[in-house]
Design a protein around this nucleic acid. Structure first.
Lengths: 233, 233
DNA sequence: TCGCTTTCTTGACCTAGGTCAATGATGCCG
DNA sequence: CGGCATCATTGACCTAGGTCAAGAAAGCGA
């Protein structure tokens, strides 16, 4: 890794609390890697050899049953952290949903560095706690919400997440965005089938709350209505 | 708190890495509290004022929708940690499923102590990472598993968790245990209704894989068969 | 621009699990 | 004990969402 000081996610990634020389030390241990859409960086059950920061792109975390059912258990955006520090096996696969750039570390190297730098470990803890809160919110969605509520919730979450990325670029319009995934992947996140996702999207579209100019693009016309559809906590 | 050195969970709780004098310092900041079955220690959305270690008993973490649907997003056993350090609001309620004893700290006091003791923070991080892995396994269950698979998975998980508690007592029989929750709570964990839970339990019982001597008691006759029913990752 | 492939939508039908309503157990307190 | 309240089971029925099967619409390489 050459220059962390120029990194587009330097203010939001876990590196952000480090002093300039710590940053340099950590930076020397990492390397930038590009990942093509569809490429899997880590396989479920494999030894967890790497961790990484996401610089650009979107990736999914997924687990599968023996008979091939897949559940997406997390979506990872720029500035997010990937991988399972302090653990031998990765409990999920990490796969790119779009072309992506990540900043990769050997897990053992990173683990050691983290243990020697409490500030980094604290950042990691904070982030993990937030991820846990998110995962639990998602458990509520998967356990108790209707298909329509799930779709509405997902659209809102993605729109929030994508717009909050814009700290280096111009402020993005919260109400118009590109889905970083196809219908099947939406289904795998929401615990639904692709047909149900499609049907609910057309339903919400017909009601005028959203518009779908093309497969990936979403325009939210009435955010309050969408919030009402998403209901709940 | 008087005597951490005698604490029954001292070897497994997050305190376990601390030196004797650190333990003493932390111990002086905490206090033992009993919680009655059904009593709520922390409310969803409230300011998160306390964190705690569970000494005895079982508690649930739950989130609710505006219209009263409840999802249990975590079950907490002795030696587990409760609460949301480094965060203002608790994203879930914490309620006792049985009478329980917990060792409570003011959140801000605990936060500060943790920041000053990297070893404690590391333990907390490790534990949070495991909880996150568990939550994600549960997302798979909620998103993709059938009612029968869910029930089988829950029974196995509880039996593992209860038997691993026995580090101070005699080794408990893994295959016979008391459910720390009623049918409604099982339903709320599994994203099912009470009727479905009941039906699936009788189905599995009829097949001879388990026995249900009374409301709470479970005997696993054929663990492998139960594993097969639980299937998946 | 033309095929070819992949993705998405839509329709017809089915089923796992939800809902509603009794009925049966099991406490528990007097 | 005996009467009530809680909890669990069971049955009959219903429905949200799954399954299966066509199409329709994009993307894309030549």
């Amino acid at each position: 890794m050459s220059d962390c000081a120029q990194c587009v996610v330097r203010n939001r990634a876990i590196c952000s609390g480090l002093s300039p020389d710590e940053l340099l030390a950590l930076g020397q241990k990492g390397r930038k890697q590009t990942v093509k859409r569809g490429q899997t960086l880590v396989w479920e059950g494999d030894d967890s050899l790497v961790v990484a920061n996401v610089i650009t792109g979107v990736l999914k975390l997924s687990v599968s049953t023996a008979d091939g059912r897949e559940q997406i258990v997390g979506i990872v955006f720029p500035s997010d952290f990937i991988g399972r520090p302090f653990g031998k096996e990765s409990p999920y696969s990490v796969t790119a949903l779009s072309d992506a750039e990540v900043c990769v570390f050997h897990r053992s190297t990173f683990d050691q560095f983290a243990r020697e730098h409490p500030e980094l470990q604290h950042k990691l803890l904070q982030r993990t706690l937030i991820e846990l809160d998110d995962a639990r919110q998602w458990m509520m969605l998967l356990g108790k919400k209707t298909a329509e509520e799930r779709i509405a919730t997902l659209l809102l979450r993605i729109s929030e997440r994508l717009s909050s990325d814009g700290c280096t670029g111009p402020t993005l319009n919260l109400d118009e965005f590109e889905l970083p995934m196809d219908r099947q992947q939406m289904a795998d996140i929401l615990g639904l089938t692709i047909e149900t996702v499609s049907r609910q999207l057309t339903r919400i579209k017909s009601s005028g709350v959203i518009e779908l100019p093309d497969r990936r693009r979403v325009v939210i016309h009435d955010r309050q209505a969408l919030l009402d559809l998403a209901e709940a906590a």
